[in-house]
Nucleic acid binder design. Structure first.
Lengths: 181, 181
DNA sequence: ACCTGAACACCGTTCAAGT
DNA sequence: ACCTGAACACCGTTCAAGT
């Protein structure tokens, strides 16, 4: 039975989740799938395009409205937290999402919802794109910092102050305060 | 006359500034310096350590207090802007600084001043490390987004909304508002 | 349509041996 | 002290040729 693009993305997500981006090579993927490297290029144009699919898959489980929120501000905070929760357990997920977002912004739906919710919460349309970026940089930075910290700990080095859930929630609150919503 | 570590860092900064991180390889550097690859490893432990030096050099021109600022808040905003201005013209500088900051936070002095100025401006010590991260993620995200935009334009693709100086200043203001300083 | 085999043009790092 | 030469173990991508 022929290999599918789905299977290639599956394998890529698996390697990323288990070993990180440094180990996610086309050749490693080919080995994992018992196929020659060249075969992958029939299913994906190149590695970057594959990573866009990987990022989309990582965010695939993030729903638009997990539950009816009390306030529009809570809806924004809740989506930001859902995105962070989806990325947190996957090493280097922030880098992958950043790359995907640069190459194909429309492919990452939950990130576009962020802007819509911000506008619904009262952010002016001229500022909502900037506000989305502000929030997204905080989410991705928070995920990356936490992962760097745990990998340094694994090597026995100190990792600076804790940048876990508390810092994340505080940062989201600070940004939303600054936006006046 | 023998090669020096300074010259290796110089060459690395040059290649980064002119061609970007993708072209900054140890072998490319060796070619540029008319030397064999192995020679570089007498002067630097590995590529990552070299990139920490590159990042420190990029931020080396950022002074602690460019001028007496009217308010502590202005001092923070002014340092943030100076950091951004130093990084903006160098492709992939945000990635390099992020890497360096993860590996050797103390090596990047201007980034540590950020926290001090935030405390002087009234941010509580328990929050100043988080606040510094918030601001730094905005600076680096803003630099990266602007550079991605211009490289997409060079390839003839649309790059989304403008994320230049206006967006940067607005973001800094929003964060400082959120901090209540 | 889908894959193999093989090549092209690269990487970072190490290290005996030379000067 | 400082560098060369050469190797080791990798990369992403392409493409004729096979089935």
């Amino acid at each position: 039975m022929a290999l599918t693009r789905e299977q290639v993305v599956d394998a890529a997500v698996g390697v990323l989740a288990d070993f990180g981006l440094a180990d996610l090579s086309m050749r490693r993927l080919a080995r994992e799938l018992d196929v020659q490297v060249g075969a992958l290029y029939w299913h994906v144009k190149n590695k970057q395009e594959l990573l866009v699919d990987v990022a989309a898959r990582l965010l695939g489980g993030v729903g638009r409205l997990p539950e009816a929120e009390a306030t529009p501000r809570d809806a924004v905070a809740s989506l930001a937290t859902a995105i962070r929760t989806a990325l947190a357990p996957v090493p280097d997920s922030a880098e992958v999402v950043q790359l995907a977002q640069t190459m194909q912004p429309a492919a990452l739906e939950p990130l576009t919802w962020l802007r819509e919710l911000l506008e619904e919460a009262g952010v002016a349309p001229q500022h909502s794109a900037w506000a989305r970026h502000l929030l997204l940089n905080h989410i991705l930075g928070s995920v990356a910092a936490q992962q760097d910290r745990s990998s340094l700990e694994a090597v026995g080095e100190a990792g600076g102050p804790d940048l876990g859930e508390d810092a994340f929630a505080w940062g989201v609150g600070t940004i939303l305060d600054g936006l006046g919503i």
